[in-house]
Design a protein around this nucleic acid. Structure first.
Lengths: 240, 240
DNA sequence: TCAATAGTGTCTTTTAGACATTATATG
DNA sequence: CATATAATGTCTAAAAGACACTATTGA
């Protein structure tokens, strides 16, 4: 049968954020031979004495300048997604890739380093076309749908929507995250009731945000609570 | 930093079943050096031209005589769990292990082959002790809790409880699966209503099962429906 | 004043859960 | 008959969802 003789282990990171009302993923130009002119999820080989989680954190730091830490005003979340190991997923050699998924607020990226690979954000709609308007390198077109579905599901039963906003935020800010990720309008009144009645999800700061240019009642500000799971869950409405 | 020079990719399979009213996992004696007298999840190296899924199916076939197919009377479910890659998880060499999770009805095992590794089932309670009554080889004590939690969660929002029973079954049989996996008693009346009112979860066959030795009304028989997700979900009661 | 956004109240429908009641078997 | 297990009925409480209404700002 022949156990694997040559083998490489890589980590690829789907970095998700919400910008301009849409869920978007970070792409970079792969530096690998034979993949010029295409885009890919940021990734790289796992180091000799490095854990998989450490490798994912390093990829995020190198490509996006993001440190995965829990800060006072926001958190960046990182979790393992799944592993892709088809023998032909990389044309050059057998590479088993452990995919990770990260959630971060928009504009948390450091400016690109000199000499760093070009990068951009792509909306998940843009990436969704089967065969796709944007065809990614390697098998990254297979990773993206798994990442998107995971993000959508996580918003149902965890407070991770909070990883897409910075403290403090309004209920409207949080609703905009849900609407962007799920691609659906939510009833503002019912959304507010659910969020504020779910224990330890958000806590009021007492302060209010100034209204927008067109006026409107000032919105109360909240910061993230301590909950690690939502009881009850925020269920996705059936797709219309 | 040094990308991985030596590297092996393995697959380990947590095979879950319900026997004697408890959730149990299949263990084997590892044939690796230095792990004599211990138990481990069945596993092995990934072949040179083999996908990860194929490797998991092969492990199941070799260690349990189980073919992962959808048959008329039952299904065996196999899914990827997560990947464990700490540099020191195997004392001998760096091995990245992709863990899989399988669901199968009890007594679906073929008899052990001549010369096959010794095997047994262990209840998850037996494996749960922190530091554990049964300490498993490698880092398999880290895989087991992830597997158990995944099984418990999957019963909430998928019809995979059906993978633990063979067609045809009674509502009582199905309830026994939930009670074993969740370790909680469920109200028979409310359970029946939820199961039968969830679309395409189970379908009546029209036949009935003979009652047990002590008598009782004969139970109606069902077979599994076509649903791939449960709407609404079967939520776990809060732990008492 | 009006338009815009934030927030509350209320009603209906659905679902969860407790628990009483009826049905059909064995001994 | 009693006992055991299956299945149904009923009531209450919680949650989801639709939508009217009030509150507070800018122009």
């Amino acid at each position: 049968m022949g156990a694997l003789t040559t083998c490489a282990v890589a980590v690829d990171v789907a970095l998700a954020t919400v910008r301009d009302g849409e869920l978007q993923l970070l792409l970079v130009e792969p530096d690998a031979e034979g993949y010029g002119g295409t885009w890919a999820l940021p990734g790289g080989r796992v180091g000799d004495d490095e854990t998989l989680d450490d490798a994912a954190r390093r990829i995020l730091r190198e490509h996006a300048g993001i440190d995965v830490t829990t800060r006072r005003d926001h958190l960046t979340h990182l979790e393992q997604l799944r592993t892709y190991g088809d023998p032909r997923r990389d044309a050059r050699a057998r590479v088993v890739s452990v995919a990770y998924l990260a959630f971060t607020p928009t504009d948390d990226l450091a400016p690109p380093r000199a000499g760093a690979a070009p990068r951009r954000f792509a909306t998940v709609d843009e990436l969704a076309g089967a065969g796709g308007e944007t065809a990614l390198a390697f098998d990254h077109d297979r990773i993206v749908p798994d990442a998107v579905e995971r993000v959508r599901a996580k918003l149902e039963y965890t407070p991770l929507a909070l990883a897409f906003v910075a403290d403090p935020f309004t209920i409207g800010d949080l609703r905009a995250v849900y609407e962007a990720v799920w691609g659906q309008r939510l009833d503002p009144a019912n959304f507010r009731r659910k969020v504020t009645s779910t224990r330890d999800f958000v806590v009021p700061t007492g302060a209010v945000a100034p209204p927008g240019p067109g006026g409107g009642r000032p919105a109360r500000l909240f910061r993230r609570g301590t909950a690690r799971a939502l009881h009850p869950a925020m269920l996705r409405p059936d797709p219309d």
